[in-house]
């Protein structure tokens, strides 16, 4: 099974990467952009999708500072 794990900085935590991108876009002529947040995408093939949550908790994300979302497709 193919899986994607989306990892985001938790709401309320300052995201300097997001701020950098948000400041860069208007300089390139793209106006009206706000609330930019930058996270990570992990793509993987898994035999047992039941293990995905534990993988996220243990390694792929740090639940103290990040939220994660698991998407699967067969």
């Amino acid at each position: 099974m193919k899986a994607q794990v989306l990892i985001r900085p938790k709401a309320g935590i300052l995201d300097p990467q997001g701020i950098a991108v948000e400041q860069a876009l208007p300089a390139l002529g793209f106006g009206g952009v706000s609330n930019v947040r930058v996270g990570r995408l992990v793509e993987l093939d898994v035999e047992d999708p039941e293990q995905l949550d534990a993988m996220c908790q243990k390694l792929l994300a740090n639940p103290l500072i990040e939220d994660y979302e698991v998407l699967t497709s067969s």
């Binding site: 300052l14 300097p16 990467q17 701020i19 950098a20 740090n62 103290l64 500072i65």
Partner: peptide, 10 residues
């Protein structure tokens, strides 16, 4: 306890 995040001023 806690975590280290990217520096505020990048």
């Amino acid at each position: 306890p806690g975590a280290l995040l990217p520096n505020e001023r990048r």
